[in-house]
Nucleic acid binder design. Structure first.
Length: 668
RNA sequence: GCGCCCGUAGCUCAGCUGGAUAGAGCAACUGGCUUCGAACCAGUUGGCCGGAGGUUCGAAUCCUUCCGGGCGCACCA
């Protein structure tokens, strides 16, 4: 609603300036005045015009004001300060339109492919992985079609590096540290399942041990590294017991990861695996394509002699005889493909540019509303298609900025500018642990580490907070609060509320800071349910619902009742001191901004914008709640307005929280 | 050495494409539950927006430079 009016105002202002001064404005800035007393929109355009017209800004503003005021839906326009044009909306009319759900649509054409999570399937998920998955899942929710918006057709995939060094390390541990055979690993999985144990936790420790084992004996170091490499090659080749063991383990860990994410309502549509990228020869197709397009060539001299390399962007054609030492190696001199090479092939597939190549698909698991597919050499029919994206969004740690830009530049170099332009790396800073948190977890720290503001999480060192452990702690803490407040409620309902609160706390914790902020994780902050937290926002929504329940009305009925009421009397504003009408109006004005905020969050690929807005809504409602006692309101019309305020707030709060993946509990 | 990111209240962070007296939360202190349930609200204390130049009617925001911190720069994935 806010956005609709804003756009209309911009058009009207542009036209007015054109008519009055014959000046064409390219861009009209619209801001919100510092307080609602000054107005709902502020136009600083008189400042810009002052220079061009050689006239005082205030004088220009005076001339423009009456012209602008003629627009429908606008109550008045006033000149303030040095020349601001402050615009007031027709409050009563606007409130009716907001209540009716009028808003500008968000969405468009073209398949959006969001990729997130992508945890190496060789250990348990930790807090860093949670940030990735929560960011990606939330962004997908912003894009997807729903009752509010057209959205875009959206697919979510989780790339599984099941044949990489990390899985190889787990296999080395099982085989060479523990002497296990394929049958033994089978038995281990069965035993863990029977005992309620977990393979991802089991490997968390083993992986850390293996990483240490490689380097602990200087005499053995070389041999152990060779063993690691050999194991890796066996995985990549397939068709042997080492590869079978890796597949067994990686699939079991993957299932664990999906369970962990499922606790947070995070679901996937497709799980492409590296094993199929290899077995289906994606790279070979990409290689031929790249050679044909002159991006890839064999180096004949210099340090990269014998490799196939890619020219980096911005590097000029070299004179004959010169070698480009800075070129990126995609195929090593031993003939194997580098990570970036494989990634380029994979991304060509995403955009449907890999000349007819596609994965086979089979169903891996069922969610209540859809299936999750996994890559296969020989798939099932029929199946959905994912490699047809118009735009892709990769949620990956900022430390991968350079490799990611390599892939983009390869696409551009191949002439796929359209694809390169629609490749978004949703990067984010790491989650680290505060030294205090690390010590609480029982890690011993050096004096130097103790002084640092934060310590990087490392799966290789087994250093970090496991996702499920954190969730368990959060749920236990939330349960304690619920138990204390609602001892009479049945246990099952209390558990349900506690779970929703715990997940709300976690998701909000990860989403409230912007992507490039390093999160120094601490249990004290993460387990907080007060202040700028998910539970605070949930609580506001619950209280709004409670008002309606106690009043004996529904959300729909209280909104419908508003249509028959003239609210202008109750929304009247003051001149210098804010009135009750101003307070009420600012609640509605904030409510009107949903689609504007949503659009901004999508454009910036920044869910934090929406999370902060949710908090603002909750905070404004808490104010409203304390200033207005709805049930005791004696004026029938005003009571209708107050009930509608609670109803619309609940509606929009629930909507925004749903985009953030946070449920509103029945009671708190 | 090259590239990218960051430096805002005691702490953790917002601050949109430059706009009106820089905002939240936490912590500290004061006050508010017989109430639509206090996971809340009101108030107080707290900032030379790392330093210095510049652009502009106007800079936390843009440019230059310096200081301090982080990350990335493989024939590892």
């Amino acid at each position: 609603m806010y956005r609709t009016l804003q756009q209309r105002l911009i058009n009207h202002a542009t036209q007015t300036v054109q008519e009055l001064y014959g000046v064409t404005l390219e861009r009209v800035a619209v801001e919100q005045p510092p307080t609602v007393l000054l107005g709902d929109f502020a136009l600083p355009l008189a400042f810009e015009l002052a220079k061009r017209l050689r006239k005082a800004p205030r004088a220009i503003a005076q001339e423009l004001a009456p012209q602008l005021a003629s627009m429908a839906g606008i109550a008045d326009v006033q000149v303030a300060g040095a020349g601001y044009l402050n615009v007031r909306m027709d409050r009563a009319a606007t409130v009716q339109r907001i209540a009716a759900g009028e808003h500008s649509d968000v969405g468009g054409e073209g398949f959006r492919l969001v990729e997130h999570t992508s945890i190496n399937p060789n250990k348990a998920a930790h807090v860093g992985h949670l940030r990735n998955a929560i960011l990606g899942d939330t962004f997908a929710r912003l894009l997807r079609p729903d009752e509010y918006k057209t959205g875009w057709p959206t697919g979510v995939q989780n790339y599984i590096d099941n044949t990489g060094v990390q899985v190889a390390d787990a296999v080395v541990g099982l085989v060479h540290l523990q002497g296990k055979s394929l049958a033994d690993v089978h038995a281990l999985l069965l035993q863990l399942a029977a005992e309620g144990g977990r393979i991802d936790y089991y490997l968390w420790d083993l992986y850390a041990r293996v990483s240490q084992w490689y380097d602990e004996d200087p005499l053995q170091k070389e041999a152990r590294r060779a063993l690691r490499l050999q194991t890796l090659h066996e995985l990549e080749g397939g068709e042997n017991d080492t590869a079978r063991m890796a597949d067994l383990v990686a699939t079991a860990v993957l299932s664990r990861h999906l369970e962990t994410m499922n606790r947070l309502s995070i679901e996937y549509d497709f799980l492409p695996r590296e094993s199929e990228v290899l077995l289906l020869h994606f790279w070979e197709a990409a290689r031929q394509e790249m050679i044909a397009r002159g991006v890839l060539y064999e180096e004949t001299a210099g340090k990269n002699k014998g490799c196939w390399v890619m020219r980096r962007p911005g590097v000029e054609e070299l004179a004959d005889g010169d070698t480009d030492e800075d070129a990126k190696v995609l195929v090593r001199s031993n003939g194997t493909v580098t990570y970036v090479g494989k990634d380029i092939a994979y991304h060509l597939w995403k955009f449907g540019l890999l000349s007819g190549k596609d994965f086979g698909y089979r169903v891996f698991r069922e969610y209540p509303k859809h299936s999750c597919w996994i890559s296969a050499v020989n798939g099932e029919e029929p199946h959905p298609y994912f490699g047809t994206a118009s735009a892709i969004f990769n949620v990956i740690d900022s430390r991968q900025n350079d490799p990611q830009s390599n892939v983009v530049e390869a696409l551009r170099g191949m002439g796929y500018a359209e694809a390169a332009d629609h490749y978004t790396h949703i990067n984010y800073a790491m989650v680290a642990l505060t030294p205090r948190c690390a010590m609480d977890l029982g890690y011993s720290l050096s004096d130097e580490d103790r002084q640092r503001p934060y310590l990087e999480v490392s799966g290789r060192k087994g250093f970090g907070v496991k996702a499920d452990d954190l969730l368990d702690k959060l749920i236990a803490a939330a349960k304690g609060e619920v138990d204390a407040r609602h001892p009479e409620t049945p246990e099952a309902e209390r558990i349900e509320s506690a779970t929703a609160i715990a997940i709300g706390a976690l998701r909000f914790f990860m989403l409230k800071v912007t992507r490039n902020t390093i999160i120094a994780f601490d249990f004290r902050d993460a387990l907080s349910f007060e202040g700028e937290t998910g539970p605070y926002v949930q609580y506001a929504a619950v209280r709004a619902a409670n008002i309606l329940r106690k009043a004996g009305v529904t959300e729909e009925s209280s909104i419908a009742a508003l249509a028959a009421v003239d609210t202008s009397l109750f929304l009247e504003g003051g001149m210098e001191i804010a009135t009750a009408g101003d307070d009420l109006w600012s609640m509605w004005l904030l409510l009107s901004r949903v689609s504007a905020v949503l659009e901004q969050a999508i454009a910036a690929a920044e869910p934090a914008i929406l999370a902060r807005y949710a908090f603002q809504l909750a905070q404004e409602f808490s104010n409203f709640y304390h200033r207005n006692h709805v049930l005791n309101e004696t004026d029938a019309d005003r009571k209708t307005l107050l009930l509608a305020t609670a109803a619309v707030t609940r509606r929009e709060l629930a909507r925004v929280l749903d985009w953030l993946g946070i449920r509103v509990p029945a009671a708190m």
